[in-house]
Amino acid sequence: MNVAITPVALKIRQLMTQHLGQRLRQQFDQLTPHERRVAGFILDHFDDFAVYSAAELARLSGVSKATVSRLFRRLGFASFQEVRQHARELRHHGVPLVTDRSALGNGLERFQRHFERERDNLHRLLEAIDADTFDAIVARLDEAPEVVIVGYRNGYPVALHLRQQLIQARDRVRLAPQPGQPLSEEITDLAPGTLVIVMGFRRRARGFEALMARLAEQDAACLLIGDPTLAASAVKPTWQLECPLDSISAFDSYTAAMSLVNLLANHLLHRRLQSGRARIDEISAGYTVLDELD
């Protein structure tokens, strides 16, 4: 199956496969001894190389600033500012890089900065959700004969938590693929009305576009939960909810995604409150019979 790749998606793919670290490794043997010093320092500090200025890279590597400039030109960068921009783009697409050494702050300031970023993510998430769209999603969660949740990499914990929450209120909620099994077996011959929920957070696994195209071919109802880089996706689902992942430094925050899981699960439970309460009671009784919880 041929899947169309948008120009934006192609740019992202090129960015992720030809980033600075890979260019350095590919050309390392062709570098001069002084250039290798700089390259070695960058590779050893790749997660935070962007916090250094060109002068600092030169000083810490024991070479001249001109050597640093020559190295970056050899790698295809017109200036050190372009290298910094490259690092910011990598961070935007999910590569965990420190781009500001003072980003965390000191003392209580670090907690305030973290709180403000998390609050901003939640605000952006909820502000972007259309109430009618949300109600339609919850209605399908309630009425679908089966819910299939697909999540790879950082999307897997979110998918696992969503499944754990939904299974409290309804039956036939499963994760796909099962460990060691191909995904194609899990999404073939989906029952009419099945809802497929796909986690599409940045640095998505290879085959994401093909999966979305396959679901579209099957005319399956699909909810795509991801981050703003989903704009590059060539295939649009039935519904799409975007969770900001911004944090104060290198690693993405999934607070907004987990909050969305909570919101969906609570609304599903309230939509089927009587049967949902009965199911929760039955599950709790099972815990007691099997002596699974304290």
Rank of each mutant, 00 (worst) to 15 (best):
E185R: 14
V95W: 01
V289K: 11
L273K: 02
A278E: 14
S69I: 04
L160A: 15
N2Q: 13
A265M: 04
D294K: 06
A221G: 09
R279C: 06
Q178Y: 05
A55I: 02
Q274M: 00
T6C: 08
Q85D: 10
L10I: 00
D29Q: 13
V173E: 09
H86N: 05
L90T: 01
A159H: 06
A131M: 02
L125F: 07
R88V: 00
A250K: 03
L195R: 03
G105H: 03
D227R: 01
L141I: 03
Q181W: 08
L293T: 11
L224E: 11
W239G: 10
V150I: 15
M199Y: 06
R25Y: 09
E116M: 03
L230G: 15
R170E: 11
G62I: 00
M212E: 02
L290T: 11
L126E: 08
T188C: 07
G62R: 00
N106I: 06
V38P: 09
Q14L: 14
L183S: 09
R37E: 10
Q22F: 11
T194F: 01
R153K: 10
K11T: 11
L125H: 06
I12Y: 02
V173D: 10
R277A: 10
A213L: 13
Q164A: 15
R206E: 15
D48A: 08
L223G: 08
A39G: 12
V38R: 04
H267Q: 14
T133D: 15
S79V: 07
Q218H: 09
L183P: 10
E82H: 12
V147Y: 03
A278R: 08
V198H: 04
L166R: 08
R110V: 11
A4H: 09
D142H: 14
G276S: 13
T194L: 03
T255G: 14
L125T: 07
H92M: 06
H161E: 14
D227V: 01
S247N: 12
E143M: 12
P177L: 05
Q178H: 10
